[in-house]
Amino acid sequence: MQLKTERLNIRPFEVEDKEDIFEIYEDEETCRFLLHEPWTDKDRDEHFERKRNQRSLGQKSSLSLAVLADDKVIGDIAIWYTDMKETVEIGYAFNKNYSGFAYASEALSAVVRSLFRDYAIHRIQANMDARNLASAKLCERIGMRREAHFIQDYWSKGEWTDSYVYAMLEGDLPD
């Protein structure tokens, strides 16, 4: 998948993206609600290679996309199939230094439209830590609806956390 929007280029990761993506994932605040700890100098090459090798969306493969603004990677969108027919889950992280410019909304909107149009996806969902209000608002901005709020259902980083499930069908896309 390669997409262009008015301001962004969205494509699989390339070798030259390592430092930009490290800038995102080394940040404690960014990783607070993610399932993994911040990347370190010791493990960044391993994490990056795994992400760089996620180049196609299939039943047994996931896709990681770099979101670029002016040739700088400012975000990461990951997509993988769930066990349900024609259903994918999306996850994302964006460089906090680029928040407030609607880049995340622009990128995710383009990706979900492409998933429905080019991959014949029936349903797209996003699961998140319920404390991640910025992520919840982002899902709502692109047309997703909150379908569930699970109470203390996930053990993450030494504590029980609540989860939200957001989802959309093609008919939920804003005009």
Results as ranks from 00 to 15, higher is better:
residue 1 M to I: 07
residue 9 N to H: 14
residue 9 N to A: 14
residue 9 N to E: 14
residue 9 N to R: 12
residue 10 I to E: 04
residue 10 I to M: 06
residue 12 P to Y: 00
residue 14 E to F: 03
residue 15 V to D: 07
residue 15 V to I: 08
residue 15 V to C: 04
residue 16 E to L: 04
residue 17 D to T: 13
residue 19 E to Y: 07
residue 20 D to V: 10
residue 22 F to A: 07
residue 23 E to N: 15
residue 24 I to Q: 04
residue 25 Y to H: 15
residue 25 Y to D: 05
residue 26 E to S: 13
residue 29 E to R: 15
residue 30 T to W: 13
residue 31 C to P: 13
residue 32 R to N: 09
residue 35 L to H: 15
residue 37 E to T: 12
residue 39 W to G: 06
residue 42 K to E: 09
residue 44 R to V: 15
residue 46 E to M: 14
residue 46 E to R: 15
residue 47 H to C: 15
residue 49 E to G: 11
residue 55 R to K: 10
residue 56 S to I: 14
residue 64 S to L: 01
residue 69 A to G: 03
residue 72 K to V: 03
residue 76 D to F: 04
residue 77 I to D: 00
residue 79 I to V: 00
residue 79 I to A: 00
residue 79 I to R: 00
residue 81 Y to S: 03
residue 84 M to I: 03
residue 85 K to C: 06
residue 89 E to N: 09
residue 91 G to L: 02
residue 98 Y to C: 01
residue 101 F to Y: 05
residue 104 A to M: 08
residue 104 A to P: 13
residue 104 A to I: 10
residue 104 A to T: 10
residue 105 S to I: 12
residue 107 A to R: 03
residue 114 S to T: 08
residue 115 L to I: 02
residue 120 A to D: 11
residue 126 A to F: 13
residue 128 M to S: 02
residue 130 A to N: 01
residue 131 R to Y: 00
residue 131 R to Q: 00
residue 133 L to D: 09
residue 141 R to C: 05
residue 141 R to Q: 09
residue 146 R to K: 12
residue 151 I to P: 03
residue 154 Y to T: 02
residue 156 S to V: 14
residue 157 K to L: 06
residue 160 W to T: 07
residue 161 T to A: 04
residue 167 A to S: 12
